[in-house]
């Protein structure tokens, strides 16, 4: 993060890729893409390509992690070595991905009805195949669809979107360059029904008023994300062809 001299991110009401300040990148979600997982989803959001698999509730390993009152959630976010132009080294967990896994897990703990499955674990595996800014919100969006696809009871669907500031303008859904060279990046996750904020992080600086404006913009934008999530879940049934079958 940090402004680079000579880089213009916002000009004549348009951003680098020609979007207006409140436009989202192209978003497409598909549910039920993996055969062996209990639930799965694939998201293409701008240049992001993320696949999510959900397993469980199943036996909690190691056993001393289990909770006799509720299921525990395990979220594993990893970025593939070929995910972006930067070098990501090996694809195992690193400092950044451990942090993202933690915040995503805490977001889902607000909506998943874990008390229905005592002493079990629900695993959410998130693989970022290609990254172009905003992978944590895209991962969260896809993981919400995958959890619903797995039949895991949830209070609500979480939709997430990043908002921020580039060249002094508040924008929605930041891309890679806007994220790296903009002034601020605020990923926000919101539950659809109650508009509860379950994830809010901030990189860079914003005034109190700007942050409030950003949050409102995120709530408006998350509605579009929710529509795509709901469409993805409904679509596989409305086409009339569906069935996960294990023999």
């Amino acid at each position: 993060m940090g402004k680079m001299p000579g880089i213009v991110l916002f000009k004549d009401g348009k951003r680098l890729d020609g979007r207006g300040p409140h436009d989202l990148r192209k978003l497409h979600i598909e549910a039920g893409v993996l055969e062996e997982a209990d639930g799965s989803a694939y998201v293409e959001w701008g240049g992001n390509k993320i696949i999510v698999g959900v397993y469980g509730p199943r036996e909690c390993i190691p056993k001393h992690f289990s909770d006799p009152y509720k299921a525990i959630l395990k979220v594993r976010y990893v970025m593939s070595p070929f995910a972006s132009a930067d070098d990501h080294g090996r694809s195992g967990p690193n400092r950044r991905s451990i942090e993202i896994s933690k915040v995503l897990k805490e977001a889902f703990e607000h909506v998943v009805l874990t008390n229905q499955f005592p002493r079990t674990q629900i695993e959410v595996y998130i693989e970022v195949l290609q990254a172009e800014g905003g992978t944590r919100v895209a991962s969260l969006t896809a993981a919400a669809v995958a959890l619903a696809d797995a039949g895991i009871p949830m209070r609500d669907i979480i939709s997430a979107v990043a908002v921020g500031k580039i060249d002094g303008t508040l924008v929605v859904d930041l891309g890679k360059n806007e994220d790296n060279f903009g002034e601020s990046d605020v990923p926000i996750a919101i539950t659809h029904r109650d508009k509860e904020i379950v994830l809010l992080q901030m990189d860079g600086l914003l005034t109190k008023e700007q942050l409030e404006e950003d949050i409102q913009a995120a709530i408006d934008a998350s509605e579009q994300v929710y529509q795509e999530q709901a469409r993805a879940l409904k679509n596989s049934y409305e086409k009339g062809e569906r069935g996960k079958l294990k023999m």
Partner: peptide
């Protein structure tokens, strides 16, 4: 194919 109204969690 004749299908019903599909409802997602939280709806």
């Amino acid at each position: 194919i004749d299908t019903e109204k599909i409802i997602v969690p939280g709806e």
